[in-house]
Write a protein that binds this DNA or RNA. Structure first.
Length: 292
DNA sequence: GGTAGACCTGGACGC
DNA sequence: GCGTCCAGGTCTACC
Protein backbone atom coordinates (compact mmCIF):
# COMPACT_ATOMS: atom_id res chain seq x y z
CA UNK A 1 0.00 0.00 0.00
CA UNK A 2 1.20 3.47 -0.81
CA UNK A 3 -0.06 6.93 0.11
CA UNK A 4 1.19 10.43 -0.63
CA UNK A 5 0.80 13.13 2.01
CA UNK A 6 1.42 16.79 1.17
CA UNK A 7 3.47 19.02 3.45
CA UNK A 8 3.09 22.67 4.31
CA UNK A 9 5.87 24.34 2.26
CA UNK A 10 8.76 24.68 2.60
CA UNK A 11 9.55 21.10 3.64
CA UNK A 12 12.66 18.90 3.61
CA UNK A 13 12.44 15.31 4.84
CA UNK A 14 16.18 14.94 5.58
CA UNK A 15 16.08 18.04 7.79
CA UNK A 16 13.30 16.55 9.90
CA UNK A 17 14.93 13.12 10.09
CA UNK A 18 18.22 14.71 11.18
CA UNK A 19 16.65 17.24 13.52
CA UNK A 20 17.80 15.38 16.64
CA UNK A 21 19.02 12.08 18.01
CA UNK A 22 15.60 10.39 17.91
CA UNK A 23 16.51 8.85 14.55
CA UNK A 24 19.04 6.69 16.39
CA UNK A 25 16.41 5.35 18.77
CA UNK A 26 14.38 2.26 17.78
CA UNK A 27 11.98 1.81 16.15
CA UNK A 28 13.25 4.68 13.97
CA UNK A 29 15.75 3.91 11.25
CA UNK A 30 17.12 5.71 8.22
CA UNK A 31 19.70 5.46 5.47
CA UNK A 32 23.09 7.14 5.70
CA UNK A 33 21.93 10.31 3.94
CA UNK A 34 18.81 10.62 6.09
CA UNK A 35 16.84 10.79 2.85
CA UNK A 36 14.30 8.20 3.98
CA UNK A 37 12.68 7.17 7.22
CA UNK A 38 11.64 3.73 8.44
CA UNK A 39 9.45 3.29 11.50
CA UNK A 40 7.84 0.16 12.89
CA UNK A 41 4.47 0.84 14.46
CA UNK A 42 1.70 -1.14 16.08
CA UNK A 43 -1.66 0.17 14.89
CA UNK A 44 -4.83 0.44 16.94
CA UNK A 45 -6.12 -2.78 15.35
CA UNK A 46 -3.05 -4.58 16.70
CA UNK A 47 -1.38 -4.98 13.31
CA UNK A 48 2.36 -4.26 13.26
CA UNK A 49 3.63 -2.52 10.12
CA UNK A 50 6.83 -0.92 8.85
CA UNK A 51 6.36 2.56 7.42
CA UNK A 52 8.86 3.41 4.70
CA UNK A 53 8.76 7.13 4.10
CA UNK A 54 10.44 8.99 1.25
CA UNK A 55 10.37 12.52 -0.05
CA UNK A 56 8.25 13.34 -3.09
CA UNK A 57 7.38 16.69 -4.66
CA UNK A 58 5.60 18.82 -2.03
CA UNK A 59 5.44 16.08 0.61
CA UNK A 60 6.18 12.45 1.39
CA UNK A 61 5.19 9.02 0.17
CA UNK A 62 4.48 6.26 2.68
CA UNK A 63 4.92 2.64 1.61
CA UNK A 64 3.70 -0.34 3.66
CA UNK A 65 4.11 -3.98 2.59
CA UNK A 66 0.60 -4.89 3.68
CA UNK A 67 -2.99 -4.42 2.69
CA UNK A 68 -4.73 -2.19 5.17
CA UNK A 69 -8.31 -1.44 6.01
CA UNK A 70 -9.56 2.15 5.82
CA UNK A 71 -9.27 2.68 9.58
CA UNK A 72 -5.59 1.64 9.52
CA UNK A 73 -4.81 3.88 6.56
CA UNK A 74 -6.42 6.83 8.33
CA UNK A 75 -4.36 6.14 11.46
CA UNK A 76 -1.11 6.03 9.49
CA UNK A 77 -2.04 9.21 7.63
CA UNK A 78 -2.68 10.98 10.95
CA UNK A 79 0.51 9.66 12.56
CA UNK A 80 2.84 10.55 9.68
CA UNK A 81 1.53 14.13 9.64
CA UNK A 82 2.26 14.34 13.37
CA UNK A 83 5.68 12.64 13.27
CA UNK A 84 7.02 14.89 10.50
CA UNK A 85 5.08 18.03 11.38
CA UNK A 86 3.74 18.14 7.83
CA UNK A 87 1.04 20.65 8.78
CA UNK A 88 3.38 23.05 10.60
CA UNK A 89 3.72 26.62 9.36
CA UNK A 90 7.08 28.02 10.51
CA UNK A 91 7.06 31.06 8.22
CA UNK A 92 7.44 33.63 11.07
CA UNK A 93 10.47 31.74 12.40
CA UNK A 94 12.08 31.58 8.95
CA UNK A 95 11.59 35.33 8.54
CA UNK A 96 13.36 36.01 11.85
CA UNK A 97 16.14 33.51 11.09
CA UNK A 98 16.98 35.29 7.82
CA UNK A 99 18.74 38.01 9.81
CA UNK A 100 20.82 35.69 12.03
CA UNK A 101 24.00 34.16 10.53
CA UNK A 102 24.02 31.49 13.25
CA UNK A 103 20.70 30.26 11.91
CA UNK A 104 21.77 30.23 8.26
CA UNK A 105 21.18 26.48 8.01
CA UNK A 106 17.57 26.96 9.08
CA UNK A 107 16.92 29.01 5.99
CA UNK A 108 19.17 27.11 3.60
CA UNK A 109 18.11 23.60 4.64
CA UNK A 110 14.57 24.31 5.76
CA UNK A 111 15.22 23.21 9.30
CA UNK A 112 12.75 23.82 12.11
CA UNK A 113 10.55 20.75 12.25
CA UNK A 114 11.47 18.26 14.98
CA UNK A 115 11.08 14.51 14.46
CA UNK A 116 8.42 13.07 16.75
CA UNK A 117 7.45 9.53 17.67
CA UNK A 118 3.97 8.32 16.80
CA UNK A 119 2.73 8.78 20.37
CA UNK A 120 3.52 11.25 23.10
CA UNK A 121 3.91 8.25 25.41
CA UNK A 122 6.86 7.06 23.32
CA UNK A 123 8.43 10.52 23.27
CA UNK A 124 7.94 10.92 27.02
CA UNK A 125 9.58 7.58 27.80
CA UNK A 126 12.46 8.38 25.45
CA UNK A 127 12.88 11.79 27.08
CA UNK A 128 13.00 10.22 30.56
CA UNK A 129 15.67 7.86 29.21
CA UNK A 130 17.80 10.85 28.15
CA UNK A 131 17.96 12.23 31.68
CA UNK A 132 20.96 11.78 33.89
CA UNK A 133 22.81 9.52 31.52
CA UNK A 134 25.12 9.68 28.52
CA UNK A 135 23.62 9.40 25.03
CA UNK A 136 24.98 5.87 24.74
CA UNK A 137 22.98 4.93 27.82
CA UNK A 138 19.79 6.35 26.28
CA UNK A 139 20.31 4.27 23.13
CA UNK A 140 20.99 1.13 25.15
CA UNK A 141 17.98 1.53 27.47
CA UNK A 142 15.60 2.40 24.64
CA UNK A 143 16.73 -0.44 22.40
CA UNK A 144 16.50 -2.96 25.22
CA UNK A 145 13.02 -1.71 26.09
CA UNK A 146 11.87 -2.15 22.48
CA UNK A 147 13.54 -5.56 22.20
CA UNK A 148 12.02 -6.75 25.48
CA UNK A 149 8.45 -5.53 25.08
CA UNK A 150 7.83 -4.31 21.51
CA UNK A 151 5.42 -6.19 19.24
CA UNK A 152 7.22 -8.00 16.41
CA UNK A 153 6.93 -7.14 12.74
CA UNK A 154 5.53 -10.37 11.17
CA UNK A 155 7.79 -10.22 8.10
CA UNK A 156 10.90 -9.70 10.23
CA UNK A 157 10.57 -10.55 13.94
CA UNK A 158 13.90 -8.83 14.61
CA UNK A 159 12.12 -5.53 14.08
CA UNK A 160 9.71 -4.38 16.74
CA UNK A 161 7.36 -1.49 17.44
CA UNK A 162 7.79 0.68 20.51
CA UNK A 163 5.97 -1.06 23.37
CA UNK A 164 2.49 0.16 24.25
CA UNK A 165 1.69 1.52 27.73
CA UNK A 166 -0.45 -1.60 28.29
CA UNK A 167 2.47 -3.96 27.60
CA UNK A 168 4.87 -2.12 29.89
CA UNK A 169 2.14 -1.80 32.54
CA UNK A 170 1.95 -5.59 32.71
CA UNK A 171 5.64 -5.72 33.61
CA UNK A 172 7.12 -4.87 36.99
CA UNK A 173 9.80 -2.66 38.45
CA UNK A 174 12.24 -5.50 39.05
CA UNK A 175 12.14 -6.59 35.38
CA UNK A 176 12.70 -3.03 34.21
CA UNK A 177 15.65 -2.74 36.57
CA UNK A 178 17.33 -6.10 36.03
CA UNK A 179 16.48 -6.83 32.37
CA UNK A 180 16.11 -3.44 30.71
CA UNK A 181 18.51 -1.82 33.17
CA UNK A 182 16.59 1.43 33.46
CA UNK A 183 17.95 1.90 36.97
CA UNK A 184 16.05 4.36 39.16
CA UNK A 185 14.01 5.39 36.09
CA UNK A 186 12.18 2.03 36.26
CA UNK A 187 9.37 3.18 38.60
CA UNK A 188 8.94 6.37 36.55
CA UNK A 189 8.40 4.48 33.27
CA UNK A 190 6.19 1.88 34.96
CA UNK A 191 4.09 4.53 36.69
CA UNK A 192 3.62 6.44 33.42
CA UNK A 193 2.60 3.26 31.56
CA UNK A 194 0.16 2.26 34.28
CA UNK A 195 -1.54 5.66 34.66
CA UNK A 196 -2.09 5.79 30.88
CA UNK A 197 -3.13 2.16 30.71
CA UNK A 198 -5.76 2.50 33.46
CA UNK A 199 -7.16 5.71 32.00
CA UNK A 200 -5.92 8.05 34.74
CA UNK A 201 -3.81 10.05 32.28
CA UNK A 202 -4.68 10.94 28.67
CA UNK A 203 -1.23 11.95 27.49
CA UNK A 204 -2.12 11.89 23.79
CA UNK A 205 -4.76 14.58 24.37
CA UNK A 206 -1.95 17.04 25.06
CA UNK A 207 -1.00 16.90 21.37
CA UNK A 208 -4.04 18.94 20.39
CA UNK A 209 -4.45 20.86 23.61
CA UNK A 210 -5.05 24.59 23.30
CA UNK A 211 -4.21 25.35 26.95
CA UNK A 212 -1.47 27.94 27.64
CA UNK A 213 2.09 26.64 27.56
CA UNK A 214 2.56 27.28 31.28
CA UNK A 215 -0.40 24.98 32.07
CA UNK A 216 0.86 22.37 29.61
CA UNK A 217 4.23 22.51 31.35
CA UNK A 218 2.56 21.91 34.73
CA UNK A 219 0.82 18.82 33.33
CA UNK A 220 4.14 17.45 32.10
CA UNK A 221 5.91 18.22 35.40
CA UNK A 222 3.26 16.11 37.17
CA UNK A 223 4.75 13.05 35.46
CA UNK A 224 7.27 11.34 37.74
CA UNK A 225 10.73 11.56 36.20
CA UNK A 226 9.90 14.66 34.18
CA UNK A 227 11.62 17.77 35.52
CA UNK A 228 12.42 21.13 33.97
CA UNK A 229 14.70 19.83 31.24
CA UNK A 230 12.43 16.96 30.22
CA UNK A 231 9.31 19.14 30.25
CA UNK A 232 10.97 21.71 27.99
CA UNK A 233 12.08 18.96 25.62
CA UNK A 234 8.52 17.62 25.43
CA UNK A 235 7.10 21.11 24.94
CA UNK A 236 9.42 21.48 21.94
CA UNK A 237 8.03 18.23 20.57
CA UNK A 238 4.52 19.59 21.16
CA UNK A 239 5.36 22.67 19.10
CA UNK A 240 5.67 25.04 22.06
CA UNK A 241 9.03 26.76 21.89
CA UNK A 242 8.96 29.19 24.81
CA UNK A 243 10.98 27.05 27.27
CA UNK A 244 14.53 25.83 26.68
CA UNK A 245 15.64 22.26 27.44
CA UNK A 246 18.65 23.31 29.50
CA UNK A 247 21.05 20.50 30.30
CA UNK A 248 24.73 20.54 31.20
CA UNK A 249 25.71 20.72 27.51
CA UNK A 250 23.52 23.82 27.05
CA UNK A 251 25.23 25.57 29.97
CA UNK A 252 28.59 24.83 28.39
CA UNK A 253 27.91 25.96 24.80
CA UNK A 254 25.85 29.02 25.77
CA UNK A 255 28.61 30.07 28.15
CA UNK A 256 31.17 29.79 25.36
CA UNK A 257 28.94 31.59 22.85
CA UNK A 258 27.73 34.51 24.96
CA UNK A 259 29.65 34.64 28.27
CA UNK A 260 33.32 34.04 27.36
CA UNK A 261 33.30 30.62 29.00
CA UNK A 262 32.35 31.99 32.46
CA UNK A 263 30.22 29.67 34.62
CA UNK A 264 26.50 30.39 34.05
CA UNK A 265 23.12 29.07 35.17
CA UNK A 266 19.76 28.45 33.45
CA UNK A 267 18.77 32.12 33.79
CA UNK A 268 21.64 33.23 31.56
CA UNK A 269 20.69 30.62 28.93
CA UNK A 270 17.08 31.86 28.90
CA UNK A 271 18.24 35.48 28.71
CA UNK A 272 20.50 34.77 25.73
CA UNK A 273 17.53 33.65 23.63
CA UNK A 274 14.84 35.93 25.04
CA UNK A 275 14.72 38.06 21.90
CA UNK A 276 13.36 35.11 19.91
CA UNK A 277 10.10 35.21 21.86
CA UNK A 278 7.79 32.30 21.09
CA UNK A 279 10.46 30.87 18.76
CA UNK A 280 13.33 30.85 21.25
CA UNK A 281 13.34 27.07 21.63
CA UNK A 282 13.82 26.61 17.89
CA UNK A 283 16.48 29.32 17.74
CA UNK A 284 18.40 27.53 20.50
CA UNK A 285 17.83 24.06 18.99
CA UNK A 286 19.03 24.95 15.50
CA UNK A 287 21.71 27.47 16.50
CA UNK A 288 25.06 26.77 14.87
CA UNK A 289 27.03 25.35 17.82
CA UNK A 290 29.53 23.63 15.53
CA UNK A 291 32.43 25.78 16.71
CA UNK A 292 32.19 24.30 20.25
C1' DG B 1 11.58 28.95 47.55
C1' DG B 2 16.21 27.19 47.75
C1' DT B 3 19.58 23.48 48.56
C1' DA B 4 21.96 19.02 49.59
C1' DG B 5 22.18 14.37 48.92
C1' DA B 6 20.58 10.09 46.91
C1' DC B 7 19.39 7.68 42.85
C1' DC B 8 21.77 4.15 38.80
C1' DT B 9 24.57 2.99 35.02
C1' DG B 10 28.47 2.65 31.96
C1' DG B 11 32.78 4.41 30.71
C1' DA B 12 37.36 6.08 31.84
C1' DC B 13 41.17 5.51 34.49
C1' DG B 14 44.76 3.72 37.61
C1' DC B 15 46.68 -0.21 39.61
C1' DG C 1 40.43 -8.04 36.15
C1' DC C 2 39.19 -5.12 39.87
C1' DG C 3 38.14 -0.91 42.35
C1' DT C 4 37.28 3.98 42.18
C1' DC C 5 35.66 8.11 40.25
C1' DC C 6 32.72 10.79 37.34
C1' DA C 7 28.86 12.56 34.38
C1' DG C 8 24.17 12.97 33.61
C1' DG C 9 18.58 15.37 35.61
C1' DT C 10 15.08 14.51 39.03
C1' DC C 11 13.17 13.58 43.48
C1' DT C 12 12.70 14.14 48.34
C1' DA C 13 13.70 15.85 52.74
C1' DC C 14 15.04 19.59 55.10
C1' DC C 15 15.80 24.45 56.19
Amino acid sequence: MEMVIPAYAPFDLASVVGSHGWIRLAPFDSDENLSSLRYVDQLGTGKVVALQIQAVKDGVSVHIDDDLIREERAEIHRKVIWMLGLDQDLTPFYKMALNEPKLASVVERVRGRILRSATLFEDTVKTILTTNTAWGGTIRMNNTLVKSFGAQLPSNPEERAFPSPETIALSDEETLRSTVRLGYRSPYVLDLARTISNGELDLEALKDSQIPTIELRKSLLNIKGVGGYAAANLLMILGRYDYLPIDSWALKVVSNEFYNGEPIGPLEVETSFERWGEWKGLAYWFWDWSSF
